[in-house]
Computed example of a mutant assay.
Amino acid sequence: MPAALTNESRTLPPAIHRLTDLSYNLWFSWNEEALKLFKSMDPVKWEQSGHNPVQLLQELEPSRLHDLCQDTAFMEAYKRIISEFDQYMNGASWFQSSHPEQSFVKIAYFSAEFGFHESLPIYSGGLGILAGDHCKSASDLGVPLTGIGLLYKKRLLHAEIRFSR
């Protein structure tokens, strides 16, 4: 099973431990600076992983992780990106600001597939890309949306991805 579809994670050095949070949140996939940060960790392994940050973090050597913690430019970029991520996740959203009385609302979005990112191959075409775009927009707006679909891996499985902040 691709690493992006597991709950496995490795323990990272304390200085960069938030990379785990970032790798398991699809926010990285539409943030160019986050993508560059993961790529800078090891461009070859980044390509080999299919641009999958979860797999990348699992495959990096401990010595490489230590070196990254000592790299001033990397650490500055890491701190800046984590700060942006935290602002996105914790900032007031349009939905919260416009509809505070609707905090109890939960919306289910059913689709056969979701095209979020190339590292999460759970789509085959247009419908999946459209569903992924709807989910990203819902996330940006803070709409409490849960995507429910099918995960095809030799047999039918259920996949659920939540998009509320």
Rank of each mutant, 00 (worst) to 15 (best):
N25F: 10
L35H: 07
H158P: 05
H117G: 03
K39D: 01
A15G: 00
Q55D: 07
A138T: 07
F110N: 08
D140F: 05
E32L: 04
Q70Y: 01
L157H: 08
G115N: 05
L37D: 00
S49D: 01
E59L: 04
A131F: 00
G142K: 14
N52M: 14
G132W: 12
S124K: 11
H51S: 10
A159E: 04
S23Q: 11
K45T: 07
L151N: 07
F116Y: 06
Q102M: 15
I148Y: 05
D21V: 09
A92L: 13
L65C: 04
R162K: 15
S93L: 13
S40V: 04
E61Q: 04
I161T: 10
L5A: 07
L141P: 04
G126T: 12
A34W: 01
P14I: 08
V105T: 13
M75Y: 06
Q70A: 09
A138D: 03
G142M: 10
P121H: 03
A108K: 14
T6N: 02
S63W: 01
P14N: 07
I82A: 03
S164G: 08
G50N: 06
P53L: 13
S119I: 13
A15I: 01
C69T: 14
E47F: 06
Q96G: 03
K153N: 10
F110Y: 11
S23T: 13
S29L: 13
L37M: 15
G91A: 07
H99D: 01
L56F: 09
K45Y: 06
D67K: 15
E113Y: 02
T146Q: 05
S23L: 15
G128C: 04
D71W: 09
Y123K: 12
H51E: 08
G142L: 14
G126W: 11
C135Y: 03
P43A: 09
S9F: 12
G50Q: 07
G149Y: 07
R165Q: 14
S111V: 12
W46L: 12
E59I: 02
A92P: 02
P62A: 11
L22Q: 08
A34G: 04
D86V: 11
Q55P: 05
P62N: 14
D42W: 02
N90Q: 13
E101G: 08
H66N: 07
S97Y: 06
L60N: 06
G115T: 02
G115F: 07
V54I: 13
E76M: 10
L156V: 10
V143F: 05
Y88Q: 12
I148G: 08
T146R: 02
E160S: 09
R18N: 06
D42P: 00
L26N: 10
R10P: 00
K45L: 15
E113D: 01
P43D: 02
D71Q: 13
V54F: 02
C69E: 08
E47I: 10
F116S: 03
S29F: 09
N25E: 08
K153Y: 08
